[in-house]
Amino acid sequence: MAHEIPAVELAPGVNLPTIGFGTWQITGRSAYESARAALDAGYRHIDTATMYGNEEEIGRALRDSGLDRSEVFITTKLPPSQAGKERQTLDASLKALGVDFVDLWLIHWPPARGRSLPTWVSFLEQRDAGRIRSAGVSNYDTALVDELIKETGETPVVNQVPWSPAQHDPRFLDDMRDRRVVVEGYSALKNTPLDDPRLVKIAEAHGVTVPQVVLRWQLHHDVVIIPKSTHPERMAQNLAVLEFSLTADEIATVNDV
Rank of each mutant, 00 (worst) to 15 (best):
H3K: 11
I5D: 04
I5E: 12
I5M: 12
P6V: 13
V8H: 05
A11G: 04
G13A: 08
L16C: 11
L16V: 06
G20T: 10
G20L: 11
F21P: 02
Q25T: 14
Q25F: 10
Q25E: 11
I26Y: 04
T27G: 02
G28P: 01
A31M: 08
S34D: 01
A37R: 13
A38E: 04
L39M: 15
I46M: 08
I46Q: 09
I46D: 01
I46A: 03
D47P: 11
D47A: 14
T48V: 09
T48F: 04
T48W: 09
A49P: 04
A49K: 01
A49V: 11
A49C: 13
M51L: 13
M51A: 15
Y52G: 05
G53R: 06
N54Q: 07
E55C: 09
E55Q: 15
E55F: 10
E57H: 11
G59D: 07
G59C: 07
D64P: 04
G66Y: 03
L67E: 01
R69T: 12
R69S: 07
E71G: 06
F73I: 07
L78G: 12
S81W: 01
S81R: 14
S81Q: 14
Q82Y: 15
A83N: 03
A83L: 12
G84F: 08
Q88H: 14
T89D: 02
S93V: 09
L97V: 02
G98C: 03
V99L: 11
D103A: 10
L104P: 01
H108P: 13
R113E: 15
R115D: 14
L117H: 04
F123K: 00
L124T: 01
E125C: 00
R131E: 01
R131Q: 04
I132F: 05
R133T: 08
S134G: 08
A135I: 08
G136W: 02
S138P: 09
T142K: 13
A143V: 02
A143W: 05
V145F: 06
L148M: 10
I149D: 00
K150P: 00
T152R: 04
T155D: 01
V158W: 02
N159R: 00
W163P: 06
P165H: 09
Q167I: 13
Q167R: 15
M176I: 11
M176F: 08
R179S: 08
R180C: 09
V182F: 06
V182C: 05
V183D: 06
K190P: 00
N191S: 10
P193C: 06
L194A: 00
D196S: 06
D196E: 11
P197Q: 04
P197Y: 02
R198H: 03
K201M: 03
I202N: 04
A203S: 06
A203M: 09
E204T: 07
H206P: 08
V210Y: 01
V210C: 07
Q212P: 13
V214T: 10
W217Y: 05
H221A: 10
D222Q: 15
V223T: 05
I225K: 09
S229E: 11
H231F: 05
R234M: 12
M235Q: 15
M235A: 11
A236M: 10
A236W: 03
L239S: 04
A240R: 14
L242E: 00
F244S: 07
F244D: 03
F244Q: 08
S245R: 14
S245F: 02
T247N: 06
D249Y: 03
D249E: 15
E250W: 02
E250V: 02
E250P: 07
I251R: 12
